[in-house]
Design a protein around this nucleic acid. Structure first.
Lengths: 222, 222
DNA sequence: TGTTTTTAATAGTAAAACTATTTTTTTTTT
DNA sequence: AAAAAAAAAATAGTTTTACTATTAAAAACA
């Protein structure tokens, strides 16, 4: 059995949750609870109740629930980046590589689970619904300096490189990469809540339509 | 002197802040305070202090600070929609119309103020930094039914129509419209906080580069 | 002018966010 | 294996935020 370890920037946590059973419980249950309650209604007290521990114990791992969310989302982007590297490996065609990468973004909600105590499907839902809160704070710049958004920026760089490999002289590779990342989440969210803001027709499979739009977006511009 | 009134969906507020001096004070000062403190640190208590009133009085206008943010952002989208209608009026060329609309999105942070008690420039900053929080909640669907996001959806529809006027058989007009709206905000935010996620070079004017990217995005796809 | 209605302030409560301190458990040393 | 040291987790708080029931003041109306 192989065990994949996604590394998350150190300053995000006080104590690495991967190192202890309690830590892993915190991660596992927080994913379930945040998805269930939404980030605003989620509290360390409720989480403590769910894992039969205490609020104060959770605070020894994460400074605040915001830091915990940053951890989860960072882990997710690291995971996506790894998935793209894995699935595009040995594919010679650059266009095909990009298509695979886009598919990973949209389809993560369906994949089989791979890391024992992390439910990637539920985590995907959290990312769709809550991830923008990770960097929309007054402390962005400090947190950015501390490397809080490193895995997201890495993933953006991965896309940027894929675009440049396909079309070396493209001038907007970074802007397109970040746009693709954000648009993929956003269109999934919109298809679930604001039907009129997407072009997913009744009866159509949203994920397929969104993938089509992303392909159209990327290859229409490159 | 002309007075423009942007109408905001009724269910957002308990009492229309436009109707009283206290209400207008709430709006005016909340814009300043939210921009200054960020939405998380902003409280009705602090706002009450700033306008020399009380928390309870503010609660007679808005059910929660979330509702107040929804009000501000809704007003902003209504205002942008009006600005686009105004500035594209009598322009015969459809391509030119779209370009004007995109310019409005990016340049709102610079315009002169027009509504006495609302500072549009500061409000623009709030929209860039906080607007995604408006619909990323567990209550999206209920609030959507109550019309909370009407002005945003209207604006999206405005763009969609502009795209279809330019290219009647385009299949992704709604998805492109929502993508353009979100991307414009997102790229402004990224240019301010995550330089590496955009292609704004050192010394370049961010707003011009972002406008260029949006034009490239729209006309590369249409 | 007196009555009704609206508006705002007082004075709270409940829950969330966070922390100092103690207790328990684990690890290390002898 | 027992004692000492270190680390982890629980107890029991405090402070702040979000929100509300009730009262007082002001405005509108008959």
């Amino acid at each position: 059995m192989i065990s994949i370890k996604i590394s998350v920037p150190e300053k995000i946590y006080i104590r690495n949750p991967e190192d202890t059973i309690l830590g892993k419980n915190i991660i596992q249950q927080s994913i379930i609870l945040i998805e269930e309650l939404g980030f605003e209604a989620f509290t360390f007290k409720k989480l403590a109740g769910a894992i039969e521990s205490t609020e104060a114990s959770i605070y020894r791992y994460f400074e605040s629930k915001h830091h915990l969310l940053v951890y989860l989302v960072s882990w997710y982007w690291g995971w996506i980046d790894y998935q793209i590297a894995y699935r595009t490996n040995n594919i010679p065609d650059n266009k095909e590589k990009i298509k695979i990468a886009l598919k990973v973004l949209v389809d993560m909600g369906k994949g089989e689970m791979s890391v024992d105590y992390i439910d990637e499907r539920t985590l995907h839902k959290i990312v769709i619904a809550e991830s923008s809160k990770v960097y929309h704070t007054k402390s962005v710049d400090t947190e950015n300096k501390d490397g809080f958004f490193k895995t997201y920026k890495n993933l953006c760089h991965t896309f940027s490189k894929l675009f440049l490999a396909y079309k070396p002289d493209y001038t907007f590779s970074h802007a397109l990469a970040s746009t693709v990342l954000e648009t993929s989440q956003q269109q999934i969210y919109f298809s679930q809540h604001f039907h009129s803001l997407t072009d997913v027709k009744l009866g159509e499979k949203p994920s397929q339509k969104i993938e089509d739009f992303l392909v159209h977006l990327v290859f229409g511009l490159l």
